[in-house]
Design a protein around this nucleic acid. Structure first.
Lengths: 329, 329
DNA sequence: CCTGACCGTCGAAGCGCTTCGATGACGCAA
DNA sequence: TTGCGTCATCGAAGCGCTTCGACGGTCAGG
C-alpha cells in the first residue's frame, strides 16, 4: 500500500499479474467474464501496487469522467449552514457511487455550464438554489448535460427537479398554528432581498402559508438582532390580535424569542411559534419549538441518486417533492 | 456560439483555421511563437466552434489536470459561514488561474488523498481546518502532492501553511480591553469540543489572549442561546471585577449582548466587548462592537495563489501568517 | 551568392485507458 | 472423428491532446 503509488499504470498491474492490460480492465470494470483465479491475481496486483486508474485516461477512453459538478450560490444571503449540509450530503453520496464532485459557483453562470460540458470534465450536474426565472436553465436544456435541479424554475419542462414541498411546509405551519387556536397568524420570512430575487422556496412557503382561510400575513425580515427586535415589535403593535408566528429565517429565531419575551408573550401558552429550519435552531431556544426541517442531506442524496440513474440511462421522475415533517417538541 | 459545443475537437478547429492540430495547441498554450495572422485565425475558429479542450485528453497528454482538490471538514461544529466564504474564495481564485476545484470531505481521510494523487485527477491540494496532530499530514508528505494547508499542524516541516495569526489576534483583543482600562478580562470561546479536538486556531487565540500580564481567563462556551445566557451569567457572578470580554464564537455574540444587558452592564461604557469573527456579526448588534476579522477570502486566495506557484515550480514561503486587523466601530 | 540562424509550421509519437474483434482451448453433439 | 458454440483471454485500435524533432522559408552576415 505504501511505496510508489505514483505512476503505476495498468500495464504494471498486468505484468505483475501475468495477463494482458485489457484483462485487468475487464476485471476492474466487470464488463466481461473473467475466471476467478485470474481475477484474484489481478486484484492482488492492484492492491500490491496501490493502483488507481488515471482519471484522464479513463475519461478519454470511456467518455465518462467519474465527476459531477455541483453549482452552488456561494455569495448570496442564503442560509449557509443549510448549503453546507447540502454540499456535504452530495459529496458523500457521490463518493458512494465512486464519483467525485467539482464545485462551481453560481457566478460562473451559463458560460460555466457550457465550459464544463464541452470539456467533458464532468458527466453531470447538480444545480442548487434554482430561481423561478433562472438563466442557467435554458443553457442546461440546450447542452443536454444530464442534470438535477434543487428547486423548481418556472418552466420545469424536461428537467429533473427535487425539492422540499415548501408549499406544504407553509401549509403545515399555518395549520399547526390554527390548531392551537391562533386567530391571526404571521409568517416571519427572510429578508426582502430573498423575495425580490424570486427564490422559489420563499415564494412557495408564502403561498402555502396564505393559502387557507383565516387572517394571515407575511412579514419579510432581515436577520440581524436589531432588525428582528424591531420587526417583531412592530408586528405585535400593528396586529394586537396576533397569537401565532411561523419563522422561516434561521438566524432570527433566537432573537424572535427574546423579542416575544420582552413583549410579555408566553410562548407555548398564550402565543405559538413554529420554525422552518434545522433542528438545532428549534432545539436551542427556550422553550424548544416545533419545527419543519429542511432536509438538506436527504435532498442532496436524492439529487445525486437521481443523477446517477440518469447517467446510467435509467429514468427518474421529473419532479420529486419531499413531504415536510412537523416535529413537535 | 450556440449550436453543437459537444464533440468539437482540436482537429475541427485546425481544419477550420487551415492549420495543423499542433499549431492550434501552440496558439492556445502560447508555448511556441505563432504568427499573429495564424493565431487570429485559430482563435476565431475556436470562438466560432465554441471549442473547449477535452479535459481528460489534456490531462493525459500534459500530466496536468487543471483541477485542484479542496478538502473541507464538512461535518464539524466549525463555523459554517466562514467555511463557505473560504470555499467561495478558493473557487473564485482558482478559476482566475483556469483551474477547477474538486470538493472532498475530511472524512475521506488519508486514503482519499492517496486516491486523488494516484489517479492524477488533481494537480494539487488545499487542506482546511488542519488540526495540531493531523493524520493527513504524514500521507501528504509521503505523496509529494503539491499542497497548501490552512492552519498549522504541530510539525509543519516541509509544508506550506497559511493562516490568520490567531495568537496575535488573541493578543490584540486582550490589549484592546486593557487599553480601555479593563482589569480582569475573559475570552468567551467556542464549545469545549473545539478545544478538545485541538483545533489549532482555538489554542492559539487562547495563548495570545493569556500571554500578557494581568488577570485573564478563558471560558469555553456552547453556542445555543440558553447556554450562552447561563455561561455569561455565571462568569459575571464568579468574577465580579470582570469588565472586558472577547468573544470568539460567532453565533453567540447576539446572545452575549442580551445577557450583558440583562445583567445591567452598559457595553461601551462600564463594560467592553470585542469580537473575533465576521464583520456582519459585530455590526449587527447594538451597540456595534469592535472586531478582529477572520479574513476567510483572503486566506483562501493566498492559499490558492501559493498552490499555483508551487504547481509552476516557483517557490513560496513555508509559512504565511496574516496580521489581524482590529476594526473599531 | 552562399551559409547559417531563426521563425513558423507540420507530422508523428505517445500519454493510459477502454473496447472491439479475434483467437485458442475446451466440451459436447452429431 | 469432425464441427460448433462457449468461455477466458489477448492484441490492436483508438479516445483528443501535447510535445518533440524536422523542415522549408527568410533574412542577415560574410
Amino acid at each position: 500500500m505504501a511505496g510508489p503509488g505514483r505512476g503505476v499504470t495498468i500495464a504494471d498491474v498486468a505484468a505483475r499479474a501475468g495477463v494482458a492490460a485489457s484483462t485487468v480492465s475487464y476485471v476492474i470494470s466487470g464488463k466481461r467474464s473473467i475466471s476467478p483465479e485470474t481475477a484474484d491475481r489481478v486484484m492482488q496486483a492492484v492492491a500490491d501496487l496501490g493502483y488507481h486508474p488515471h482519471a484522464g485516461a479513463r475519461s478519454l477512453a470511456s467518455r465518462r469522467a467519474g465527476v459531477v459538478a455541483m453549482m452552488l450560490p456561494l455569495r448570496d444571503g442564503m442560509h449557509l449552514p443549510v448549503l453546507m449540509q447540502f454540499a456535504s450530503g452530495a459529496v458523500t453520496e457521490a463518493r458512494r457511487h465512486d464519483q467525485d464532485v467539482l464545485l462551481m459557483t453560481a457566478d460562473e453562470g451559463p458560460a460555466g455550464l457550457a465550459r464544463v460540458a464541452a470539456s467533458a470534465i464532468v458527466d453531470g450536474l447538480i444545480l442548487m438554489d434554482v430561481e423561478v426565472r433562472d438563466p442557467r436553465v435554458e443553457t442546461l436544456r440546450r447542452l443536454g448535460l444530464p442534470s438535477v435541479l434543487i428547486g423548481f424554475p418556472a418552466d420545469a419542462e424536461g428537467l429533473t427537479c427535487v425539492d422540499l414541498d415548501f408549499t406544504a411546509a407553509g401549509r403545515v405551519c399555518a395549520d399547526y398554528l390554527s390548531d392551537r387556536g391562533c386567530g391571526t397568524i404571521a409568517l416571519l420570512g427572510a429578508s426582502e432581498a430573498v423575495y425580490a430575487r424570486r427564490t422559489g422556496f420563499a415564494e412557495r412557503v408564502r403561498e402555502g402559508f396564505l393559502g387557507r382561510s383565516g387572517p394571515a400575513l407575511v412579514q419579510p425580515c432581515p436577520d440581524d438582532p436589531v432588525s428582528v427586535q424591531r420587526t417583531v415589535k412592530e408586528l405585535l403593535a400593528s396586529h394586537p390580535d396576533l397569537t401565532g408566528l411561523a419563522v422561516h429565517n434561521e438566524p432570527a429565531v433566537g432573537h424572535v424569542m427574546h423579542a416575544l419575551a420582552d413583549a410579555g408573550k408566553r410562548v407555548g401558552e398564550d402565543f405559538h411559534v413554529v420554525v422552518i429550519g434545522p433542528d438545532e435552531v428549534a432545539e436551542r431556544v427556550h422553550p424548544q419549538l416545533p419545527s419543519v426541517l429542511v432536509p438538506a442531506e436527504t435532498l442532496a442524496e436524492t439529487a445525486v441518486r437521481h443523477l446517477m440513474r440518469k447517467l446510467d440511462g435509467l429514468d427518474v421522475p421529473d419532479s420529486t417533492l419531499v413531504e415536510p415533517q412537523l416535529t413537535i417538541r
